[in-house]
């Protein structure tokens, strides 16, 4: 009995440092955020007071909130399937026996290693109207007029999407490469013997067997589509007219630019709720299709 309780004490002592930081920087702030979302923003000598769901009512009526939410949906739809498709294509390609395979793998992975801020600065040059890489290429190849990709509300968000896909695909490729290498070669050989071509082998064998990876990657991608906003600061600052602003970027602006911490907390709660719902939904959606070994 005594030994049992001693073990318990040891266990808790060992867990304590990690638990402390986990609570101090994750759990307590999360609960505080929920708490704050029901209070007004303290200003000067006016302390925060309980206002119930007033902040939430404001959020429902806030056109900018709906705009950035729509943007975020479009951003997720634009980045996730594309980056997953590109990641799979790259993984299949570098998994083949080709000359300089190591070099190609490294080249594909490079965008992942670069800081997003640096990536955004590089792309800022690409997008520069007139003499940026893209405009130059477009004008010499197709004779297109000069375009302000980042300054036009119609193209700003799409321009941001392209940068994100470029940045993320290489990262996801690594997971798919690992998944591909975990598939026993004899399965592909058996399929070949049965008369299957490359296309059939991919859709009937390889892709279904990589489903756990796809689930993992897509959950990460969804979270990233809400989380990755660093490049927006560099590329567009959310503009023009919130055309490229995303939910987290709006939260940052609200809480730390306009110091509306109460409303910022409310927006944060909304974002967390959406993320939870998506992650749970994905698990149920994929559950029937994912084959775990």
């Amino acid at each position: 009995m005594l030994i049992r309780s001693r073990e318990w004490v040891h266990a808790w002592l060992l867990l304590l440092p990690a638990l402390f930081f986990l609570f101090a920087f994750t759990h307590v702030p999360a609960v505080m955020t929920l708490w704050n979302s029901f209070y007004s923003t303290p200003r000067g000598r006016r302390p925060a007071r309980f206002i119930g769901i007033e902040n939430y009512e404001r959020m429902i009526g806030d056109p900018v909130f709906w705009k950035v939410l729509g943007n975020n949906l479009w951003f997720a739809l634009g980045t996730i399937p594309t980056s997953i498709a590109i990641a799979i294509a790259m993984a299949l390609w570098v998994n083949d026996r080709l000359a300089g395979r190591g070099f190609v793998r490294m080249a594909y992975f490079t965008p992942t290693v670069l800081p997003l801020i640096a990536v955004a600065n590089i792309w800022l040059f690409f997008y520069t109207p007139g003499f940026g890489l893209i405009d130059q290429a477009a004008s010499t190849l197709f004779g297109w007029p000069q375009t302000n990709w980042l300054g036009d509300p119609a193209t700003a968000l799409n321009a941001v999407i392209v940068v994100t896909v470029w940045k993320e695909a290489g990262f996801f490729m690594i997971f798919y490469l690992a998944a591909l290498q975990a598939i026993p070669p004899s399965l592909v050989e058996a399929a070949k013997i049965e008369g299957a071509g490359r296309w059939t082998i991919f859709w009937r064998i390889t892709f279904p067997l990589m489903m756990p990876t796809t689930l993992f990657v897509s959950i990460n991608a969804v979270i990233n589509s809400f989380r990755l906003v660093d490049h927006i600061f560099i590329l567009t600052n959310g503009g023009p007219d919130n055309a490229s602003s995303l939910l987290l970027f709006y939260i940052y602006e609200t809480a730390f630019k306009y110091w509306e911490t109460g409303y910022g907390a409310t927006l944060t709660v909304a974002m967390l709720a959406i993320l939870c719902a998506l992650a749970i939904g994905q698990f149920f959606f994929f559950d029937r299709r994912v084959h775990y070994k």
Binding site: K192, I193, G195, P208
Partner: peptide, 28 residues
């Protein structure tokens, strides 16, 4: 291999783990 019109049984069996027995057998 696909055009040689033959069948093969592998040492590891190489059954497709995500397909059931019937689907495995009729794959070809």
């Amino acid at each position: 291999a696909a055009e040689r019109n033959l069948a093969m049984v592998f040492q590891s069996y190489a059954l497709f783990p995500h397909l059931d027995v019937a689907e495995n057998i009729v794959f070809g």
